[in-house]
Design a protein around this nucleic acid. Structure first.
Lengths: 116, 116
DNA sequence: CGTCTATGCATCACAAATCTATGTATTAAA
DNA sequence: TTTAATACATAGATTTGTGATGCATAGACG
């Protein structure tokens, strides 16, 4: 990814999130989708993506299916029912985290906001 | 810390942020400050804190000074000039990251916000 | 006086997540 | 025919944080 360190822990949530609004996605498509949706800010590397997808599948949160496009293989992923529940939890957790960090970091010279 | 994976990459920024609003802080004080300011959500572990502080010092972003309180040692840290600049950059980077993730994650069933 | 808790620093072995690099292969464009 | 894009995958290295452990002072409580 781009911001490297900061993204840690967010990858699986991002993948789940993307799968929650698309019936199915394959790896490469997912990287392009995230790239586009993030304004080229989040670039998921293959070395991160595939292990992450494999782990999600091993954990039973997604299932996959090979599809041949001509001679080329694509592996489509989709959420399982447990995966859908996990997605909701995962998003909530990430939201909570973002909120906490924002509150901790926010009042800062340069972006100073007077007390209410 | 509490959220483990999610916090990756944010620790040094949090430390810098805290030092930017206090003339000096020692390790233990820093953990208590963050704990308090985050509503007990972010609990910096000693095994994370001290290595992080040492690294910031090695990078020249903070300096430290030993102070004896009776027989007990305290090591106070404060920002250097480069550290102050690095803090601003670091905060900006973190803000950008939070914004990007939020935009990517936000529109989600349960928190659905109709298009404008 | 003894014990428990808090204060205060530090380091090591370990685990988890991601990155870089590498490998293989198809397909479309130049 | 060479390059870029598409498409998957894995191995090794790196980074970061955790848990465990160690040492020591200090205050509270009985």
């Amino acid at each position: 990814m781009s911001n490297t360190e900061l993204l840690k822990g967010t990858l699986s949530t991002i993948i789940l999130r993307m799968l929650s609004e698309h019936p199915r996605l394959y790896g490469y498509e997912l990287t392009q989708l995230v790239k586009e949706r993030s304004g080229d800010k989040i670039l998921i590397k293959e070395g991160s993506l595939y292990p992450a997808l494999h782990k999600l599948e091993a954990d039973g949160l997604v299932t996959s299916e090979e599809v041949y496009i001509g001679k080329r293989v694509r592996r489509y992923y989709k959420l399982t029912e447990p995966g859908k529940k996990a997605t909701l939890l995962s998003i909530e957790e990430l939201r909570g985290f973002l909120k906490t960090i924002e509150e901790l970091i926010l009042p800062f010279p340069g972006n100073y906001v007077p007390a209410k």
